[in-house]
Protein backbone atom coordinates (compact mmCIF):
# COMPACT_ATOMS: atom_id res chain seq x y z
CA UNK A 1 0.00 0.00 0.00
CA UNK A 2 2.85 2.32 0.89
CA UNK A 3 4.66 1.79 -2.41
CA UNK A 4 1.55 2.43 -4.40
CA UNK A 5 0.96 5.64 -2.50
CA UNK A 6 4.47 6.86 -3.21
CA UNK A 7 4.04 6.09 -6.90
CA UNK A 8 0.85 8.10 -7.10
CA UNK A 9 2.39 10.75 -4.85
CA UNK A 10 -0.64 10.87 -2.63
CA UNK A 11 -1.52 9.07 0.57
CA UNK A 12 -4.17 6.33 0.44
CA UNK A 13 -7.71 7.56 1.05
CA UNK A 14 -7.97 5.51 4.24
CA UNK A 15 -4.97 4.74 6.42
CA UNK A 16 -4.54 2.41 9.38
CA UNK A 17 -3.25 4.50 12.24
CA UNK A 18 -2.72 3.76 15.90
CA UNK A 19 -6.10 5.36 16.65
CA UNK A 20 -8.18 3.73 13.96
CA UNK A 21 -8.97 3.80 10.27
CA UNK A 22 -8.25 7.37 9.26
CA UNK A 23 -9.29 9.54 6.34
CA UNK A 24 -6.68 12.32 6.29
CA UNK A 25 -8.41 14.50 3.71
CA UNK A 26 -11.65 14.61 5.71
CA UNK A 27 -9.88 14.33 9.08
CA UNK A 28 -12.34 11.69 10.37
CA UNK A 29 -11.90 8.20 11.76
CA UNK A 30 -13.97 5.08 11.11
CA UNK A 31 -14.69 2.94 14.22
CA UNK A 32 -11.63 4.37 16.02
CA UNK A 33 -10.30 2.47 19.05
CA UNK A 34 -8.68 5.51 20.71
CA UNK A 35 -10.35 8.87 21.38
CA UNK A 36 -10.54 11.12 18.28
CA UNK A 37 -12.34 14.41 17.49
CA UNK A 38 -14.71 12.96 14.87
CA UNK A 39 -15.80 9.34 14.42
CA UNK A 40 -18.02 7.51 11.92
CA UNK A 41 -19.43 4.39 13.56
CA UNK A 42 -20.54 1.26 11.67
CA UNK A 43 -22.56 -0.31 14.50
CA UNK A 44 -23.16 -0.41 18.23
CA UNK A 45 -20.91 -3.30 19.34
CA UNK A 46 -18.39 -2.34 21.98
CA UNK A 47 -15.29 -2.90 19.86
CA UNK A 48 -16.61 -0.61 17.11
CA UNK A 49 -18.45 2.08 19.09
CA UNK A 50 -16.07 3.14 21.88
CA UNK A 51 -15.97 5.81 24.53
CA UNK A 52 -14.39 9.21 24.38
CA UNK A 53 -14.74 10.62 20.86
CA UNK A 54 -15.63 14.27 20.32
CA UNK A 55 -18.34 13.71 17.75
CA UNK A 56 -20.14 10.54 16.60
CA UNK A 57 -21.93 9.96 13.30
CA UNK A 58 -23.87 6.74 12.73
CA UNK A 59 -26.97 5.47 10.93
CA UNK A 60 -30.37 6.67 12.09
CA UNK A 61 -31.25 3.14 13.08
CA UNK A 62 -28.17 2.97 15.33
CA UNK A 63 -28.96 6.20 17.17
CA UNK A 64 -30.99 4.70 20.05
CA UNK A 65 -28.42 1.91 20.48
CA UNK A 66 -25.43 4.26 20.70
CA UNK A 67 -27.33 6.56 23.05
CA UNK A 68 -28.18 3.62 25.26
CA UNK A 69 -24.64 2.29 25.33
CA UNK A 70 -22.59 5.50 25.43
CA UNK A 71 -24.96 7.89 27.18
CA UNK A 72 -24.56 11.60 26.75
CA UNK A 73 -22.41 12.01 23.63
CA UNK A 74 -22.48 14.37 20.69
CA UNK A 75 -24.26 12.16 18.19
CA UNK A 76 -25.96 12.55 14.83
CA UNK A 77 -27.61 10.00 12.55
CA UNK A 78 -27.87 9.62 8.78
CA UNK A 79 -30.32 7.51 6.80
CA UNK A 80 -28.91 4.60 4.76
CA UNK A 81 -27.68 5.80 1.37
CA UNK A 82 -27.66 9.49 2.30
CA UNK A 83 -24.47 11.06 0.95
CA UNK A 84 -22.80 13.76 3.00
CA UNK A 85 -19.57 15.70 2.63
CA UNK A 86 -16.84 16.18 5.19
CA UNK A 87 -14.05 18.50 3.97
CA UNK A 88 -14.90 17.59 0.39
CA UNK A 89 -14.91 13.82 0.95
CA UNK A 90 -18.22 12.07 0.33
CA UNK A 91 -19.41 9.57 2.94
CA UNK A 92 -22.48 7.36 3.11
CA UNK A 93 -23.79 4.46 5.22
CA UNK A 94 -25.09 1.29 3.53
CA UNK A 95 -26.77 -1.72 5.14
CA UNK A 96 -24.36 -4.39 6.44
CA UNK A 97 -27.01 -6.82 7.72
CA UNK A 98 -24.92 -7.53 10.84
CA UNK A 99 -27.14 -6.15 13.63
CA UNK A 100 -29.90 -3.56 13.79
CA UNK A 101 -28.55 -0.26 12.41
CA UNK A 102 -25.25 -1.73 11.21
CA UNK A 103 -23.64 -0.20 8.15
CA UNK A 104 -20.80 -0.36 5.72
CA UNK A 105 -19.17 3.02 5.22
CA UNK A 106 -18.59 4.17 1.66
CA UNK A 107 -15.92 6.83 1.15
CA UNK A 108 -15.47 8.62 -2.18
CA UNK A 109 -12.91 11.23 -3.12
CA UNK A 110 -11.83 12.36 -6.60
CA UNK A 111 -13.45 9.34 -8.24
CA UNK A 112 -11.85 6.78 -5.91
CA UNK A 113 -14.23 4.66 -3.81
CA UNK A 114 -13.42 2.71 -0.65
CA UNK A 115 -15.84 0.65 1.44
CA UNK A 116 -15.25 -0.33 5.05
CA UNK A 117 -17.57 -3.15 6.12
CA UNK A 118 -17.40 -3.07 9.87
CA UNK A 119 -19.05 -6.48 10.41
CA UNK A 120 -21.53 -8.01 7.98
CA UNK A 121 -23.53 -11.02 6.86
CA UNK A 122 -25.46 -11.72 3.69
CA UNK A 123 -28.52 -13.53 5.07
CA UNK A 124 -31.64 -11.55 5.93
CA UNK A 125 -32.07 -11.99 9.69
CA UNK A 126 -35.50 -10.36 9.85
CA UNK A 127 -34.24 -7.66 12.23
CA UNK A 128 -31.50 -5.64 10.53
CA UNK A 129 -31.72 -4.07 7.07
CA UNK A 130 -30.25 -6.68 4.69
CA UNK A 131 -26.73 -6.31 3.32
CA UNK A 132 -26.35 -4.40 0.06
CA UNK A 133 -23.25 -4.85 -2.11
CA UNK A 134 -21.56 -1.52 -2.91
CA UNK A 135 -19.19 -1.20 -5.86
CA UNK A 136 -15.77 0.10 -4.91
CA UNK A 137 -12.07 0.08 -5.75
CA UNK A 138 -10.86 -0.94 -2.32
CA UNK A 139 -12.86 -3.11 0.06
CA UNK A 140 -11.91 -3.30 3.73
CA UNK A 141 -13.47 -6.53 4.92
CA UNK A 142 -13.78 -8.37 8.19
CA UNK A 143 -13.17 -12.13 7.96
CA UNK A 144 -14.14 -13.46 11.39
CA UNK A 145 -15.24 -16.70 9.76
CA UNK A 146 -12.85 -16.62 6.82
CA UNK A 147 -12.15 -20.35 6.63
CA UNK A 148 -13.74 -22.84 4.23
CA UNK A 149 -15.12 -24.93 7.13
CA UNK A 150 -17.63 -22.21 7.95
CA UNK A 151 -20.68 -22.90 5.84
CA UNK A 152 -23.90 -21.64 7.38
CA UNK A 153 -27.08 -23.63 7.02
CA UNK A 154 -30.27 -21.88 6.10
CA UNK A 155 -31.16 -19.80 9.23
CA UNK A 156 -34.82 -20.86 8.98
CA UNK A 157 -33.65 -24.40 9.63
CA UNK A 158 -31.64 -23.26 12.71
CA UNK A 159 -34.57 -21.27 14.11
CA UNK A 160 -36.80 -24.31 13.80
CA UNK A 161 -34.13 -26.43 15.57
CA UNK A 162 -34.15 -23.90 18.41
CA UNK A 163 -37.94 -23.93 18.72
CA UNK A 164 -37.92 -27.71 18.53
CA UNK A 165 -35.37 -27.92 21.34
CA UNK A 166 -37.36 -25.47 23.46
CA UNK A 167 -40.62 -27.38 22.87
CA UNK A 168 -38.90 -30.59 24.02
CA UNK A 169 -37.75 -28.90 27.27
CA UNK A 170 -41.18 -27.35 27.70
CA UNK A 171 -42.92 -30.71 27.55
CA UNK A 172 -40.47 -32.00 30.22
CA UNK A 173 -41.26 -28.92 32.36
CA UNK A 174 -37.64 -27.85 32.10
CA UNK A 175 -36.34 -24.36 31.39
CA UNK A 176 -34.49 -23.72 28.15
CA UNK A 177 -31.68 -21.20 28.60
CA UNK A 178 -30.63 -19.74 25.28
CA UNK A 179 -27.41 -17.73 25.18
CA UNK A 180 -26.73 -14.99 22.67
CA UNK A 181 -24.97 -11.65 22.72
CA UNK A 182 -27.30 -8.89 23.97
CA UNK A 183 -27.07 -6.66 20.91
CA UNK A 184 -27.86 -8.43 17.66
CA UNK A 185 -28.02 -12.14 18.39
CA UNK A 186 -30.59 -11.70 21.15
CA UNK A 187 -32.99 -9.70 18.95
CA UNK A 188 -32.52 -12.09 16.06
CA UNK A 189 -33.25 -15.10 18.28
CA UNK A 190 -36.20 -13.39 19.90
CA UNK A 191 -37.71 -12.44 16.58
CA UNK A 192 -37.87 -16.08 15.53
CA UNK A 193 -38.95 -17.75 18.77
CA UNK A 194 -42.39 -19.30 18.71
CA UNK A 195 -44.29 -17.66 21.61
CA UNK A 196 -46.95 -20.40 21.43
CA UNK A 197 -44.50 -22.82 23.06
CA UNK A 198 -44.33 -20.96 26.35
CA UNK A 199 -43.32 -17.73 28.08
CA UNK A 200 -40.11 -15.96 27.08
CA UNK A 201 -37.98 -14.27 29.73
CA UNK A 202 -35.05 -11.96 29.07
CA UNK A 203 -31.98 -11.35 31.23
CA UNK A 204 -31.53 -7.69 32.27
CA UNK A 205 -29.02 -6.55 29.61
CA UNK A 206 -31.18 -8.11 26.90
CA UNK A 207 -34.36 -6.65 28.40
CA UNK A 208 -32.82 -3.19 28.10
CA UNK A 209 -31.54 -3.67 24.56
CA UNK A 210 -34.84 -5.14 23.41
CA UNK A 211 -36.65 -2.13 24.77
CA UNK A 212 -34.27 0.21 22.95
CA UNK A 213 -34.86 -1.55 19.63
CA UNK A 214 -38.58 -2.34 20.00
CA UNK A 215 -39.63 0.86 18.25
CA UNK A 216 -38.01 -0.49 15.07
CA UNK A 217 -38.83 -4.22 15.28
CA UNK A 218 -41.89 -6.27 16.22
CA UNK A 219 -40.88 -8.78 18.87
CA UNK A 220 -42.89 -11.53 20.56
CA UNK A 221 -43.99 -10.59 24.06
CA UNK A 222 -41.27 -11.00 26.70
CA UNK A 223 -41.08 -10.91 30.49
CA UNK A 224 -38.18 -9.52 32.47
CA UNK A 225 -36.20 -12.04 34.48
CA UNK A 226 -35.80 -10.47 37.91
CA UNK A 227 -35.84 -11.42 41.59
CA UNK A 228 -39.65 -11.34 41.78
CA UNK A 229 -40.14 -14.10 39.20
CA UNK A 230 -41.50 -17.28 40.77
CA UNK A 231 -39.30 -20.23 39.93
CA UNK A 232 -42.33 -22.34 39.08
CA UNK A 233 -43.15 -19.89 36.29
CA UNK A 234 -39.76 -20.63 34.75
CA UNK A 235 -40.52 -24.30 34.20
CA UNK A 236 -41.08 -24.75 30.48
CA UNK A 237 -40.05 -21.16 29.79
CA UNK A 238 -37.31 -19.96 27.52
CA UNK A 239 -34.76 -17.62 29.06
CA UNK A 240 -32.69 -15.48 26.75
CA UNK A 241 -29.38 -14.44 28.35
CA UNK A 242 -25.99 -13.12 27.25
CA UNK A 243 -23.17 -15.71 27.34
CA UNK A 244 -21.31 -13.63 29.92
CA UNK A 245 -24.17 -14.26 32.36
CA UNK A 246 -23.86 -18.06 32.09
CA UNK A 247 -23.39 -19.68 35.49
CA UNK A 248 -24.63 -16.59 37.34
CA UNK A 249 -26.69 -16.77 40.52
CA UNK A 250 -29.95 -16.42 38.57
CA UNK A 251 -29.38 -19.87 37.06
CA UNK A 252 -29.72 -21.46 40.51
CA UNK A 253 -33.44 -20.67 40.34
CA UNK A 254 -33.80 -23.16 37.53
CA UNK A 255 -34.08 -26.85 38.19
CA UNK A 256 -32.15 -28.94 35.68
CA UNK A 257 -32.22 -26.43 32.80
CA UNK A 258 -31.09 -27.27 29.31
CA UNK A 259 -28.59 -24.74 27.96
CA UNK A 260 -28.16 -23.71 24.35
CA UNK A 261 -25.72 -21.34 22.73
CA UNK A 262 -26.20 -19.66 19.36
CA UNK A 263 -22.96 -18.67 17.64
CA UNK A 264 -20.99 -19.32 14.48
CA UNK A 265 -18.27 -20.85 16.68
CA UNK A 266 -20.63 -23.68 17.52
CA UNK A 267 -19.54 -25.18 14.18
CA UNK A 268 -16.55 -26.53 16.12
CA UNK A 269 -17.05 -29.46 18.45
CA UNK A 270 -14.11 -28.24 20.52
CA UNK A 271 -15.68 -24.83 21.13
CA UNK A 272 -18.99 -26.48 21.95
CA UNK A 273 -17.46 -28.86 24.46
CA UNK A 274 -15.32 -26.18 26.06
CA UNK A 275 -18.38 -24.16 26.90
CA UNK A 276 -20.13 -27.19 28.32
CA UNK A 277 -23.55 -26.19 26.99
CA UNK A 278 -26.04 -28.90 26.11
CA UNK A 279 -26.74 -27.61 22.64
CA UNK A 280 -24.79 -25.48 20.18
CA UNK A 281 -26.75 -23.76 17.42
CA UNK A 282 -24.67 -22.61 14.48
CA UNK A 283 -26.09 -19.17 13.93
CA UNK A 284 -23.85 -16.22 13.16
CA UNK A 285 -24.18 -12.53 12.38
CA UNK A 286 -21.00 -12.67 10.33
CA UNK A 287 -20.54 -13.85 6.77
CA UNK A 288 -19.35 -17.43 6.25
CA UNK A 289 -16.65 -18.39 3.75
CA UNK A 290 -18.91 -18.38 0.73
CA UNK A 291 -20.59 -15.21 1.95
CA UNK A 292 -17.29 -13.35 2.22
CA UNK A 293 -16.22 -14.41 -1.26
CA UNK A 294 -19.60 -13.52 -2.72
CA UNK A 295 -19.59 -10.11 -1.05
CA UNK A 296 -16.09 -9.32 -2.29
CA UNK A 297 -16.93 -10.36 -5.82
CA UNK A 298 -20.07 -8.22 -5.83
CA UNK A 299 -18.08 -5.05 -5.03
CA UNK A 300 -16.07 -5.40 -8.25
CA UNK A 301 -13.03 -4.30 -6.24
CA UNK A 302 -9.39 -4.91 -7.16
CA UNK A 303 -7.99 -4.43 -3.74
CA UNK A 304 -9.04 -6.08 -0.47
CA UNK A 305 -7.78 -5.26 2.99
CA UNK A 306 -8.63 -7.96 5.55
CA UNK A 307 -8.93 -6.64 9.07
CA UNK A 308 -10.16 -8.99 11.75
CA UNK A 309 -10.55 -12.76 11.77
CA UNK A 310 -8.39 -15.30 9.91
CA UNK A 311 -6.81 -12.35 8.13
CA UNK A 312 -3.54 -13.85 6.89
CA UNK A 313 -5.05 -17.02 5.48
CA UNK A 314 -7.96 -15.24 3.92
CA UNK A 315 -5.74 -12.61 2.26
CA UNK A 316 -3.42 -15.30 0.92
CA UNK A 317 -6.37 -17.15 -0.58
CA UNK A 318 -7.66 -13.92 -2.17
CA UNK A 319 -4.24 -13.24 -3.69
CA UNK A 320 -4.35 -16.68 -5.30
CA UNK A 321 -7.73 -15.72 -6.73
CA UNK A 322 -6.16 -12.67 -8.37
CA UNK A 323 -7.03 -9.95 -5.86
CA UNK A 324 -4.53 -7.45 -4.55
CA UNK A 325 -5.12 -8.43 -0.93
CA UNK A 326 -3.31 -7.38 2.22
CA UNK A 327 -3.89 -7.53 5.95
CA UNK A 328 -3.98 -4.60 8.34
CA UNK A 329 -3.96 -4.79 12.10
CA UNK A 330 -6.92 -3.27 13.93
CA UNK A 331 -8.29 -3.44 17.44
CA UNK A 332 -11.35 -5.36 16.24
CA UNK A 333 -10.33 -8.68 17.76
CA UNK A 334 -11.99 -11.68 16.25
CA UNK A 335 -9.47 -14.46 16.11
CA UNK A 336 -10.62 -15.88 19.43
CA UNK A 337 -13.96 -17.61 19.41
CA UNK A 338 -15.19 -14.46 21.05
CA UNK A 339 -16.51 -16.24 24.11
CA UNK A 340 -15.23 -14.11 26.90
CA UNK A 341 -14.42 -10.94 25.03
CA UNK A 342 -16.75 -8.11 24.25
CA UNK A 343 -16.81 -8.75 20.51
CA UNK A 344 -19.71 -10.16 18.60
CA UNK A 345 -20.59 -13.72 17.89
Amino acid sequence: MYLEAVKKKKPPLLQFSSRGIYCAVADVYLDPWRPVPKALITHGHADHARWGHGQYICTEASLPILKHRLGNIQLSGRPYGDRFLVNGVQFSFHPAGHVLGSAQIRVEYQGEVWVFTGDYKLENDGVSTPFEPIRCHTFISECTFGLPVFDWQNPTEIHSQINHWWAAQNSDKRSAVLMGYSLGKAQRLLKHLDPNIGPIYTHSSITAMTEVTSAQVDFPKTLALNKEVDKNDLKGALILAPPAAAGGAWMKKLSNPSTGYASGWMSFRGARRRRGFDRGFVLSDHADWKGLLKAIKATGCEKVITTHGYTHLFAQYLREQGYDAITEKTAFEAETPAEETSTTL
Partner: peptide, 23 residues
Protein backbone atom coordinates in the same frame (compact mmCIF):
# COMPACT_ATOMS: atom_id res chain seq x y z
CA UNK B 1 -9.72 -25.72 -1.53
CA UNK B 2 -5.95 -25.41 -2.06
CA UNK B 3 -3.91 -27.93 -0.08
CA UNK B 4 -2.16 -25.29 2.03
CA UNK B 5 -5.48 -23.81 3.10
CA UNK B 6 -6.85 -27.23 3.92
CA UNK B 7 -3.81 -27.87 6.13
CA UNK B 8 -4.11 -24.52 7.91
CA UNK B 9 -7.81 -25.07 8.44
CA UNK B 10 -7.17 -28.54 9.80
CA UNK B 11 -4.76 -27.12 12.37
CA UNK B 12 -7.37 -24.60 13.47
CA UNK B 13 -10.21 -27.13 13.70
CA UNK B 14 -7.85 -29.55 15.41
CA UNK B 15 -9.49 -32.71 14.10
CA UNK B 16 -9.17 -34.24 10.65
CA UNK B 17 -12.51 -36.08 10.63
CA UNK B 18 -14.30 -32.92 11.65
CA UNK B 19 -12.43 -30.73 9.15
CA UNK B 20 -13.45 -32.99 6.28
CA UNK B 21 -17.02 -33.21 7.55
CA UNK B 22 -17.29 -29.41 7.57
CA UNK B 23 -15.28 -28.47 4.50
Amino acid sequence: VPDWLFEETYHIVGDLAETIALI
